[in-house]
Structures are given as structure tokens and as C-alpha cells.
């Protein structure tokens, strides 16, 4: 419980700073202006970022469907609860850390420190993979506690389904990260545009926050 509180506090602090940065940015450069009647293209949010926002809304709806099913079912008789194995706390810390390294990577990119950018991205990839491995180990522990697919319904089955889907989203992010690292090694990443890195970062923070939501929830 303390662990989660500390994590949340840390996270809250971190995002508060990001928000302040964003507001400052907004005041200085006005790049955040989402004026839908504005006629000048460059003032709008970059289309790729905007598209990702919509995609995130879409993914949220899917998990909202799953978690609301969970709520409805957990009120029915015959519901079986589970005790989460400790390893899921490890995976939580891992993915939180990976968000920080991702953010540092973006900073490095903007500062044109490509070597640093690449190594931070690689660290993020490793942490992302470590998260998935931790999740799989956690599933294994649950499995050994005799929480199986077959038979009667309960939190365990939902956990496999929901956390499994979340894990797939993380894996998708890992693949995208690897592509970006390889591209920058091949000198293909556009030095002048930080948009791909920022889009990547947005997605990565999103899967991170999504996991926190699922964790608190499940």
C-alpha cells in the first residue's frame, strides 16, 4: 500500500511538472492552440499527435468496456476474488521507470544528443520487455494458485484477459520503440522533427497510466 502511495505521489509530481512545462510552452510559443476555426495550419496540434489522441480514446473505450464488465460481474453471486502476487508491484515500478527514461530520451532528442537518445531508448525497450516478462511471471504465479481458465468465473479470468490485452499494447509499443532505435542508428530519423519521438512518448505514458488504472482497479 505504501509502495503504491509513493509511486502515485512521485507520478503526480512528475506529471505536474510536465503540465507546468506545457503551460509555459503554451504561453511562449502557442503550439498548443487547438483553435478549430483557426485557419493557419501551423498553429494546430500536429495531425499525428491528434490522431494518437483519438486512438487513445478508442483504446480507453475498449478497456472501459472490459472493466465495466468486471464491475458488473463482481457484484454477482459466486464471484471469486484473487490476491495479486507481489511481482506485479515490481512490474509497476519497472514501467514507471520506463516512462521516465522515455521522457529523458525525448529531452535528449531535442537537445540533439543522439547517442544519449539511443541509449535511453534502448533502456526503455529493455524496461518494457522486463515489464512484460514480470507480467508473464505473475500470470504463472496465479496459475500455480489454481486460478485457471477453465471452470467458474471470477476476478482471475478477468485479470488474465485484461492484463493480457494491456501487455499486448505494451509489446506493440516495444516494437515501435525498436523500430525508432533502428531508424536512428541507420540515420533515418529526421533530426529536425521531434514529433515521432513525442508521439512515441505519449503512447508510452498512456500504456503506463493505463496499467496504473487497471492495477488500482483490479
Amino acid at each position: 500500500m505504501e509502495a503504491i502511495c509513493i509511486c502515485l505521489l512521485y507520478y503526480w509530481h512528475y506529471y505536474w511538472q510536465r503540465l507546468r512545462d506545457a503551460v509555459e510552452h503554451f504561453n511562449n510559443k502557442k503550439i498548443f492552440e487547438v483553435d478549430i476555426v483557426s485557419n493557419e495550419q501551423h498553429k494546430r496540434v500536429h495531425p499525428h499527435k491528434f490522431t494518437l489522441w483519438v486512438a487513445i480514446a478508442s483504446i480507453i473505450m475498449m478497456f472501459a468496456g472490459l472493466t465495466s464488465a468486471f464491475i458488473v460481474k463482481s457484484n454477482l453471486t459466486g464471484w471469486r476474488t484473487i490476491v495479486l502476487p507481489k511481482i506485479f508491484w515490481v512490474s509497476t515500478i519497472v514501467i514507471l521507470t520506463s516512462s521516465v527514461t522515455m521522457q529523458m530520451a525525448i529531452k535528449a532528442f531535442k537537445a540533439r544528443e543522439m547517442q544519449r537518445y539511443r541509449s535511453l531508448m534502448t533502456v526503455t525497450v529493455v524496461l518494457g520487455l522486463a515489464f512484460v516478462v514480470c507480467q508473464i511471471m505473475g500470470f504463472g504465479e496465479l496459475w500455480d494458485q489454481n486460478i485457471r481458465f477453465k471452470g467458474s468465473s471470477g476476478a482471475g479470468q478477468f485479470f488474465y484477459a485484461i492484463a493480457g490485452l494491456h501487455g499486448l499494447h505494451v509489446l506493440g509499443g516495444v516494437v515501435a520503440l525498436i523500430v525508432m532505435v533502428v531508424r536512428s542508428l541507420a540515420g533515418k530519423s529526421k533530426l529536425y522533427s521531434a514529433v515521432p519521438a513525442e508521439v512515441m512518448g505519449m503512447y508510452w505514458h498512456f500504456v503506463d497510466l493505463l496499467w496504473l488504472y487497471l492495477l488500482i482497479f483490479l
Binding site: S58, I59, M61, M62, F63, A64, G65, L66, A69, K73, F149, K150, G151, S152, S153, Q157, F158, Y160, A161, L165
Partner: peptide
């Protein structure tokens, strides 16, 4: 996406023997 979530659970029921 909500239908997708429903269908994913259906696939679990069909092939893994879960009881959603």
C-alpha cells in the same frame, strides 16, 4: 472497441474454457 472487448471475452470462452 467495446464490441471488440466483448468479442475478445467470447473468444476466451470459446477456446480457453473461461466462464465470462
Amino acid at each position: 472497441p467495446v464490441l471488440l472487448s466483448g468479442v475478445v471475452l467470447l473468444m476466451f470462452d470459446r477456446h480457453l474454457g473461461t466462464s465470462f
